[in-house]
Structures are given as structure tokens and as C-alpha cells.
Nucleic acid binder design. Sequence first.
DNA 1: CTGAAAGCGCTTACAG
DNA 2: CTGAAAGCGCTTACAG
Lengths: 321, 321
Amino acid sequence: MTGSARRPTIIDVAHAAGVSKSLVSAALRGESGVSGASRERILAAAEELGYRSNGWAQRLVSGRSDLVGVLLTDLRNAYQTEIVNGIEDAAAAAGFDVVLSHGRRDRDLLRTRLAGLIALGVDAVIAVTGHLDADDLSAAAGRIPIVVVGRPSSVPDAAGWVRNDDETGAGLAVAHLHERGHARIAYVHGSSRPASIARRDAYRALVPEPREYDVREGGIDLLLEEASSGGLTAAFAANDRIAAQVVADATDRGIRVPQDLAVVGYDNTELADLVRPGLTSVDQPRSAMGAAAMSQALALLEGGAPAREVASPALVVRGSS
Amino acid sequence: MTGSARRPTIIDVAHAAGVSKSLVSAALRGESGVSGASRERILAAAEELGYRSNGWAQRLVSGRSDLVGVLLTDLRNAYQTEIVNGIEDAAAAAGFDVVLSHGRRDRDLLRTRLAGLIALGVDAVIAVTGHLDADDLSAAAGRIPIVVVGRPSSVPDAAGWVRNDDETGAGLAVAHLHERGHARIAYVHGSSRPASIARRDAYRALVPEPREYDVREGGIDLLLEEASSGGLTAAFAANDRIAAQVVADATDRGIRVPQDLAVVGYDNTELADLVRPGLTSVDQPRSAMGAAAMSQALALLEGGAPAREVASPALVVRGSS
DNA sequence: CTGAAAGCGCTTACAG
DNA sequence: CTGAAAGCGCTTACAG
């Protein structure tokens, strides 16, 4: 028994098959110039020995990892799931594997995790988050191809960018409420981030008397009091999460949705289908956005210039409006 | 300008600092036997050149990656978030980085992703899923330390295992409903997976006349009809997701929760707090379970024997019961 | 079609 | 404290 616990290498396979390690390498990679007989012996020997290629060595020498890192804001955001699936399908089609990382909604941690993905050695990063600053993004973009999905404060020229059209989406929501006969419509949000600002600005442009509520400042309570007194008949929320909270709190107070208060959310996450009444919500073509991001990453990898893509949202009507 | 676009290596740093690459390596790794003067010059040169260590080379030569792979059933499961955080915190404390992967709730894809993590070269895998078979797990456990969090059909002896006590958890739920005066309690589930079976069996042992409903066979409708006719006053759901669906559909039918039908879920996910009425639910100590899994992974890495840990659940009461 | 050599960017003993 | 050598497990030219 000379066989130790050591993992077999191509040299072991070469010995077993009676050929050189170069030929083993060629056969294992499926190169053309290998005789059928040799190939068979090599593959059999590899199988027999339980040979597995050492990825670190392969990546070191080839200089590429065929790995794309995907950075998520956090792990509880249903919105991202479809984007990731879109990325993964496109990645698989291009022969890339995906590794995921997330930043628990914390900018410092996101920055750390972004650096971690780069240090890991991925070929490109797709940052599905709006929580990174231009500084963070350009620092990374100087070292590796980066594509952003979402709406950070700004995206450096060196990075690719895929986002939905927040202005149009907000317009769809407000127009829908107008059609339903609502004149006094509020905007509820929970942040001052660009996507929320963009939706708010579009809202402001369409509503004669804008009334804005910030959930971080007890905005939902204020909004519901206003609704109780008839000063308000509809609310457009910056996302489904907030919309669900409005519906929940309204229910707690005996305010009927949609009779007393119509509510529209954004993102059309699974939450929209799970609460009652179901949430009317603005849907983003998330899977396609993920695929587009992966395409951009591939293009950047081949030396292409960063692009900017804006996807069109659509309204999904449910019981809340 | 001799400086090409090539990424600087320790050799470049060695040239710039006028020392050998061995010394650069030692200084960069913070080894003790390096003079202050040399260290300073080396660090300055590295900084100046924008040197970054090549992870592939480091891992190839050191034989370890300090990386632990975490495999998730899917990305839309709020239940897993806290487990992952627990894993990550424990990993960071031990100097490990975490890479995530997920299988979209599909066993074949999960198997592929598990193989992908191993091929990537992580030092250990924590599989936060009950969707892998004993075969899949033992194949992997033969090559790398594996810890399972959850309840697959069976866990091979070679793998570590952390799970919650489903029997006790179900007992808490049923006892709570009994205390609230309910005698006719149903069990609603959506799978025949071990966790669900274990909860069901505990339920059966405590309820005189068990009535079980499978959501895949229109069980919610049947359950609600029974509730309408007074044949049923409470339902224990295999998880929050199903509990939320029961509440939603009950609301659609005008069945009041909890007056006409009390509902208890399992997992105490954020969903429990977001629907109305809020869901009474069985809580698992998820963060601690994640930390325990990481500890086990570290122990396995050091040659320890696989362990089996069972965490105690607790009941969180909300408006649905 | 096949093999020997060089090299990827590091770390690890081992001399001095 | 420092340097030269060997080697991690592969792939990439380059001869034959």
C-alpha cells in the first residue's frame, strides 16, 4: 500500500496511465489532439484514482476563474431572488459559476464583502444593490469588471448599470389610482435613497397636493389618521414591504383596504400575493434585468465599454386598490 | 515606462524594496522575524505598487482556502437568513470567509451546487437544507467536512448535524391551542419531508382526532370549509408560509382569525409579523444554530468527530391564536 | 500524437 | 534577519 490519503494529481494519473502529465491535462480538458486509446486509458485511470482537478492550480495558471461574484444588499429581500436567477441562468450558459455574498443592508459590510469577492478572485462582480457609494464602486471597478443592478447614488463610468425606470413605474401607480377615482394620494417611503427619491419626484409631478410620509418618523400612523378623517383616500408606497405594513396597520385600526384606503406597492414581490388584500404593485422585469447584467459583465470581460440599461416596469393590479 | 498593465507580484515588490521575495512574503504575512526597516520598505513598496496577493496561488501552496461554503435551499426563505448570519459571525471570528450558493428548491440543482462549492475549493460546507439525500451528503462528506442544518431524510454518520426539536416545537403549538380552549385542531402541511412529518407525528400524539390537510391537494379550501361549518376551530401549520396562506384565504372567505379559526405557524419568520393578524409561531434559535454549525465545521476541520445537536424551540404568541 | 521544460504567484523549509 | 531553492498542481508553448 503506497497509496497515502493525499489527493491524487495529474501526475498520479499520468503514472497510472503510463503517459506524461501534459497528455493527461490535454485529455482531461477534452483537447482534440489526443489519441482515442490514450484518452480512454487516462480517463479510466482518473476515474479509478478518484481524481479531481485542483481548482486553485487551474485558476492560478489560467489566470481566470470563470466565476462571477454576486453581491446582495441582504438575504431577506424577496425582490432580488429573480434577479439572481436571471444572472445564474445567463452565467451558466456562458460557462460561469456564481458565488453569492451579502451585506446585511450595511454599507460598511457591503464594502467589505465586495472586497472579499475581489480577493477571492472572481472574474467580475454584479452588485445587486443601491447601497454602495460611487467611491466604493469605482475603487472596485478599477480592479475588476463591475455591473450594478439597482440605483445607488451614482454609478461610476467604469461600471455597467442595469436598473428599472422608477419614474415610469411611479407614474403607472399614480395613474392607476387616478383612474380609480382617487384625488388625495399620499406617498409613503422609508429612505432617502435614489430609487425612492425618483419615485417620489415622479409622484410629485403628477399629484396636485403631494403629502409625503416617512415610516421612520411614524409616517404610517400619521397617514392612517389622515385616512381616518377622510383627508386621504390612497397611498403609493416606495416598496411592497412598506405597502404591506400600511395594510397591516390599517387593518389593526379598522380602516378598510381598499374601500377606505387604496394602497399600491412597488416590486411585485411574493409578499404582494401573500397579504390580504393582495397588493397592487409595480413589477420590474427582474429575471431579464439579471440576464442583462450578466451579459454586460461578459462584455466588460472582453474589453467592451460599460453600458447603461433601463428596464420598463409594469403594473400588476390586486385587491388593495 | 516599463510598467505594463500586469498585476504586480511579490517579485515586483521585492525588486522595488530591494529584498528577496521570501522576505516580502514573510513581511506581508506579518511574520515575526523581519526587521522593522525591511518591513517598512516592503509595505511601502507594496502600497506604492498597489500590490494585492493572488488568492489562487496562496491557496494552492497553503492547501487551505479559509473559505466555508454555505448551501441554501433557495433564496426566498426568510427562515435561513438568521442562520446564515450566525454562521458568518462565527466564521469571521475564526478567520473564515463565507461564500453562498443556493438550489432554487430543486434537489438536482442543489446537488450540482454542492459539487460546485467543493470544486471551488472551500474547506468545508454547511448545507442549510433538508432537500439533499443521504447519498448526496455522504458523497460530499467523503471529500470534505459537511455540516447539515435542517432535517433531510437522513444524515450520514460522516456529517455533522444541527436541527431544531420539531417534536417539542409542535408540542408547544398544540398545547397553546389547547390552553386557548381549542379541541378540534387541524394540521396543514405542504410536503412529506421529515421536519413536516416529525411535526405531524407530535401533533397526532397530542390531538384525539387528528385531521390533516395537504395544501398541494387543495387542503386549505377543505380546511376552511370545515372551519365554516364549525367542525374545526384551530389549525397548526407546518410553517409560517402556509399559516399566512391559511390566514389570507380565511380572510378572503370572511372567516375571522382568530375568532372563527385560530392559526399557529412555525419558524417565526418576518412574515409572521407582517400579515394580519400576526402569526403565533414556533421560533427556532436560528442564529445560535448557525453558530453551532460553524463550530462543528471547525471541529471537523481539525479532525474531530461529527456531532448531532438539537436546539430547543419556543413559542411566540401573536394575534392569530 | 506525445513528452520535457518552463512558468503561474505564492509559501515552506533550510542555509547562512 | 535574509536569501536561494524547491515545490504546490496545473497549463502553455515548443520540440519531436
